Simulated assay, not measured.
Amino acid sequence: MDIALPGEGGRSTRYRLVGQPAQPVIGARFSRIAYAAAHVVADPLAMTDPWSHPAVDWERTMAFRHHLWRLGFRIAEAMDTSQRGMGFDWTNARELIRRSIAEARTVEGADLASGAGTDHLAPGAGRTLDDVVAAYEEQFGFIEGLGGKAIMMASRALAAVAKGPDDYASVYDRILSQASGKVILHWLGDMFDPALKDYWGSHDFETALDTVVAILKRNAGKVEGIKISLLDAGKEVALRSRLPEGVVMFTGDDFNYPELIAGDGERHSHALLGIFDAIAPVANAALARLADDDRAGYDALMAPTVSLSRKIFEAPTEYYKAGIVFLAWLNGHQDHFLMVGGMQSARGICHYADVFRLADQAGLLADPELAIARMKNLCAVAGV
């Protein structure tokens, strides 16, 4: 099978598919905790004002979560992969969390953690640290009131009002002290969200690291783990080596995740990754190999996904969600390639052509004929 795809300079070239669709291991047991940050499926037929009032296809959105649970993944809900802060507001996120927690209770062994942030504050409305604390309290209260587990997301409002590391420590200490269960923290870099530049009160990584470690040590009994998303393996290893006992590392490094999950023989990272949404069948098979101490088999499966992930997460990185949803569409998890807020327009046709090629080479086109038919349609819309 082959297809004409745009290449360098926009010239159309024939691409012959070479990949074999991945064969996931249903019922596999992993030796790593593996959260997939899941996307949401838009409902284009229900949207009359797509930018301001996006609509969600709840049936397809829940069906995709069942797909991930079936493959053995835990789900990180209402995170940036679901476009929190990029077209998906707290009103929709609250409904997503409510539905997902209820849905998880219908699946034996299903696990779910939900993002708690401050994104319902209007820009400029968070003027003080108390405003930020109250906003976090509202979202924590909603999640924990439903019996859910919270992921404490980075806050644009906190980044805007904090004057230094002590302000971050004050807010995190207050929220963690009040949490009813263990919390996952999320250190999100400004490549994912420019508004988070100099988070933790410093541009210097070592200073920020000291602030985070101090928070973790003071609140170790309330923290399950921390996700770090800086796309820098060295920085993750530096934090991993300083974690207090009982607190685990969740890699959020969509560039270097295979080596970080596998570990260095002494320490390893668990996973909370947006790319697992897109590569779930291969990641499932690879993690099953790792659990069987088959490092070579794990590496062989994971290696081709890295080029794909680096393409999906290329700069401007905050638009990676488009590639995630594109692959869900190619693989039949939804009937259209339209996103909340029209975010599919954030990438060009040559980007999508590259993602198509790399997904094929990684064994991530489950039905190649369907994928080719849909890619041809997208190319036609783009005038290719």
Rank of each mutant, 00 (worst) to 15 (best):
G141N: 02
F276V: 04
D293R: 13
R174H: 15
R16A: 15
C350F: 10
L239D: 08
L290V: 06
K321Q: 08
G383D: 09
K235F: 07
A300N: 11
G117P: 00
A220R: 12
T305E: 15
M153P: 06
A55K: 13
V355E: 03
G109N: 11
V384P: 04
R16G: 13
V161D: 05
P368K: 05
Y257V: 01
E95G: 06
F64Q: 11
K376M: 11
A116N: 05
A78D: 13
I312R: 04
D354P: 01
S241G: 01
G234Q: 12
A46R: 15
A46Y: 13
P258T: 03
V325R: 14
F356I: 01
A300I: 07
V247G: 02
P50I: 14
Y319V: 10
I151M: 08
M86D: 11
I97E: 05
T251V: 03
A93V: 01
A353H: 10
A233I: 03
P304A: 03
F73H: 04
A366W: 13
A280W: 06
K376Y: 02
M339R: 13
H268K: 04
A116Y: 05
I215R: 00
R357C: 10
F30C: 04
G297F: 11
Q83V: 10
K311D: 02
E236S: 03
E137A: 12
A322K: 09
S12D: 15
R357N: 09
I184L: 05
T128F: 08
D190P: 08
A353R: 09
T251D: 01
L17I: 10
L230A: 09
A278H: 01
A262I: 00
S31E: 11
E77N: 04
D204N: 11
R74N: 13
G148P: 03
E236Q: 07
L290F: 08
A346F: 11
I261Y: 02
